[in-house]
Computed example of a mutant assay.
Amino acid sequence: MPFTALCPADAIGENTSKQFELSGIKLFVVNERGVFYAYRNRCPHLGIELQWQEDKFLDFDGEMIQCATHGALFLMHNGECVAGPCRGKSLESISCTVIDQQVSVDLEELDLSQHP
Rank of each mutant, 00 (worst) to 15 (best):
F20C: 05
M64Y: 09
E108S: 14
E63V: 03
M1F: 02
F57A: 02
L110I: 11
S17K: 03
Q66R: 12
G47W: 12
E63K: 15
A5L: 04
S90W: 08
V98M: 01
G24V: 00
K89P: 08
K18H: 01
T69E: 05
R33W: 11
F3K: 02
Y37H: 15
Y37K: 10
D61A: 14
V35E: 13
I94C: 04
G47Y: 07
M1N: 10
I48K: 13
N15H: 04
A9T: 03
V29Y: 04
D111V: 01
I48H: 15
E14T: 00
L73A: 06
D55W: 12
D55Q: 08
F74E: 07
A72H: 09
G47C: 02
Q66C: 07
D59Y: 05
D61N: 14
L75F: 15
L91I: 01
V105T: 08
G88E: 07
K89Y: 09
E63I: 14
R87T: 10
D106W: 11
I99C: 03
L22D: 03
M64N: 13
T4F: 07
H77F: 12
E21V: 09
S23H: 12
I12H: 01
A38W: 11
D55E: 03
W52Q: 05
A83S: 14
Y39K: 02
G71S: 07
I25C: 10
K26Q: 13
L112W: 09
